[in-house]
Nucleic acid binder design. Structure first.
Length: 558
RNA sequence: CGGGGCGUAGCGCAGUUUGGCUAGCGCACCUGCCUUGGGAGCAGGGGGUCGGAGGUUCAAAUCCUCUCGCCCCGACCA
């Protein structure tokens, strides 16, 4: 392609109102434009990247026997009503009525429709297994679109669905997808890890997420470098870092106006890990007192699995129920249900004395209070791995893919049944597997950029090589540029020729910004001597080569 | 949905506190000259319902009311 005829609107100045590096660079380099909050136009360069990513997705999906299909984006409400998600999902689903007032929605995922099709077409164990996938637009009325193309209201997704006659078959398909996903993300040049995840609204028992480390990410994962344990902090288990055992007699300490762990910790010159933090929450069945160590945070989701939906108690409620103002609550002597984090079983602690402006030192579990024991703290860096005891790392990540073992969550309500060898009717056992191509692109930029712009991994770059004829008024330069363009294109390389009447500096800046992996630079003096330069975008290293060797060198490094 | 911020030329911004002449600057864009190894220079030029509606006033980008949009934090999130 010729630069002069392509729409590549690069920006010299950084657009304001952009936070994520990938967002800024995609705008500046002319890959995308924003139509409205969470709605993006992919310009020619951006779409080329998406096309290459999708090609990799198709190759790897086809390689595990998945079959591509195309599904409607507009869905009738009934199918979603049958699985119950029409009611459970809420405002995140775009809903509308057709001209006959029939309820419809825009697809935010395709479990329902895929399962509907399976129910209609799959009858016998002989029809199984099947794996179907699509690379299509999903729509979600996100409460808060953000970070450019990382979280949008309309986005492309590769989603596949497996249909099996047995749990064993499901596990096999799940494993195949996990392997395919490893190949896909590696081919796309990403650093990533597969972590245990919370199935959330998808339902099902087992699920994993594929996470690419980046400060622009929305999730955090806990990772153990020594045994490989890896989990989303939404569910990650960890052991509290051990502190030196202290022996105190049980005694009250005057702590005037010192309410938070931090305040009392400073006042008593004692590390927060020696404190016991008491948090009162309100549930449908009444108040619950949650206890975590002073240096830990209460994990809302873990607690929710034990006590159900809850909210923090208001200050007046704390006073009414526990008889003491917030800040001086302790675990002793209350009639409310108490859930304590496992890390408090051992050790001696300081907590509120249930008496204004006093704390109690020397509290022991079992002797001074009793509780139901659970893991209700949030894993944090330096906590210990539950499997091997090594220190954990916590990393911010972009979710680029996920895999779920759905089981019969969708096949049952949609009556996707098959007859087994014995003529028994059984629900089809399903899995679902998603990848966000735009997130791959964004993560690739997040992980591969420098002060000058994007550094595309070769596999997903919009072009393989860019030719920069520096002086378009020099006939020899122009002629050589055209010749190289033709020869490289003939070998199957995707070539961008910057044939604009621009000064050298502009072409260098734009080339670095756009981030095509290899640049062929044609300066007037070098051209006269039959020399061209090949520059590696990543290393910035430049080598001079004879004009006749350019194509060979580029092909070899590609 | 809660909290905060911002809407002035394609982009980046000043002007708004304290109302007052024809609404400005840089970049980009157009024409000409010149230049061609890291976003050149000179000269000339085009482009604005100051997000929108209503109000106050002799006079509104500026003050008041309402409204729309975008960004950030939080809640939410297959």
């Amino acid at each position: 392609m010729r630069f002069s005829t392509m729409l590549i609107p690069t920006l010299r100045e950084t657009p304001s109102e952009t936070e994520a590096v990938s967002h800024r660079l995609m705008l500046r380099a002319g890959f995308v434009r924003q139509l409205a909050a969470g709605l993006y136009i992919f310009l020619p360069l951006g779409w080329r990247v998406m096309t290459r990513i999708n090609a990799i997705l198709r190759e790897e999906m086809n390689a595990i026997g998945a079959q591509e299909v195309s599904m409607p984006v507009l869905h009738p409400a009934e199918v979603w009503q049958q699985t119950g998600r029409w009611d459970t999902i809420g405002e995140e689903m775009f809903r509308l009525k057709d001209r006959t007032e029939r309820d419809m929605c825009l697809g935010m995922t395709h479990e329902e429709i895929m399962t509907w099709l399976a129910a209609k077409e799959l009858r016998s164990y002989r029809d199984l297994p099947q794996v179907w996938y699509q690379i299509q637009t999903k729509l979600r009325d996100e409460a808060r679109p953000k970070s450019g193309i990382l979280r949008t209201r309309e986005f492309l997704m590769k989603d596949s669905y497996s249909f099996d006659a047995s749990e064993e078959g499901l596990r096999k398909n799940y494993e195949r997808h996990a392997e395919a996903y490893h190949r896909i993300f590696a081919r796309c040049g990403l650093t990533f890890s597969m972590v245990e995840s919370d199935p959330g609204m998808m339902g099902g028992a087992v699920s994993h997420e594929f996470m690419a480390p980046s400060p622009a990410g929305e999730d955090e994962v806990a990772l153990c470098d020594s045994c490989g344990y890896a989990a989303n902090v939404e569910l990650a288990a960890s052991l509290a870092e051990k502190n030196e055992l202290r022996e105190w007699p049980l005694e009250e300490v005057h702590t005037p106006e010192k309410r938070t762990v931090q305040e009392v910790s400073n006042f008593l010159k004692l590390h927060p890990s020696y404190f016991l933090k008491s948090i009162l929450v309100m549930t449908d069945k009444g108040p619950v007192l949650a206890l975590v160590r002073g240096d830990q945070e209460l994990h809302e989701k873990k607690l929710m699995k034990i006590v159900g939906a809850h909210r923090p108690a208001q200050k007046t409620e704390v006073k009414d129920i526990l008889g003491v103002e917030a800040g001086f609550i302790g675990p002793m002597g209350h009639k409310v249900r108490i859930i304590a984090d496992d890390s408090l079983k051992e050790g001696v602690y300081v907590s509120g004395a249930n008496k204004p402006h006093y704390h109690l030192r020397g509290i022991r579990a079992g002797r001074d209070f009793s509780a139901e024991w659970h893991d209700i703290h949030t894993a944090k860096a330096a906590d210990l791995c539950v499997k091997c005891g090594s220190a954990l790392r916590v990393e911010r990540v972009i979710e680029i893919g996920n895999i779920f073992q759905l089981g019969i969550k969708y096949s049952n309500p949609l009556r996707a049944y098959f007859l087994d060898e014995n003529g028994q009717e059984k629900p089809i056992i399903m899995g679902s597997y998603g990848i966000g191509p735009a997130r791959i692109a964004a993560a690739a930029i997040e992980q591969n950029n420098d002060k000058d712009g994007i550094i595309w991994p070769k596999s997903i770059a919009p072009f393989d090589v860019e030719i920069l004829p520096l002086n378009m008024n020099d006939p020899a330069t122009v002629e050589l540029a055209s010749a190289l363009y033709a020869r490289m294109s003939a070998t199957g390389l995707e070539v961008l020729l910057d044939d604009r009447e621009e000064r050298a500096g502009v072409k260098f800046k734009d080339a670095d910004l756009i981030g095509i992996p290899a640049q062929v630079i044609l300066g007037e003096k070098n051209v006269k001597e039959g020399i061209a330069e090949i520059k590696d975008r990543r290393t910035k290293e430049t080598v001079k080569v004879k004009v006749d060797e350019v194509v060979e060198r580029i092909s070899a490094s590609h």
